[in-house]
């Protein structure tokens, strides 16, 4: 029961972060949003008994790809135009 509630909260948070990172005009915040989505997804993978995938998601999704995005934003522009 507690696990079910926790999973529900995690899924809800994941969706909020996903919508936020699509909607926001500040690309840096969007990257942080996708990083949060990656972290929550990796927790969900762990709960679903897939530790291998959880590790890959945490290391690549939350670590390396965030770094690559931040570097790219630093080289280009931070704000999205209409």
């Amino acid at each position: 029961m507690i696990l079910t509630i926790a999973v529900a909260i995690l899924i809800l948070m994941m969706m909020v972060f996903a919508v936020y990172s699509v909607e926001t005009k500040d690309l840096l915040y969007a990257v942080v949003g996708t990083m949060a989505v990656s972290l929550i997804v990796s927790i969900l993978f762990y709960v679903l008994q897939a530790p291998d995938v959880a590790m890959a998601e945490a290391a690549i999704g939350a670590g390396i790809s965030t770094a690559v995005f931040v570097i790219a934003i630093k080289k280009t522009e931070r704000y999205e135009h209409d």
Binding site: D52, A54, M55, A56, A59, G63, I64, A67
Partner: peptide, 25 residues
């Protein structure tokens, strides 16, 4: 450690490689 123990514990080549890349980062 992660990729050497890929066949025993969770993890493997891709995960260990990503950790190594973060060290260089």
């Amino acid at each position: 450690y992660i990729f050497v123990h890929g066949h025993l514990t969770p993890g493997g080549g891709f995960q260990g490689g990503a950790v190594i890349a973060t060290a260089f980062l």
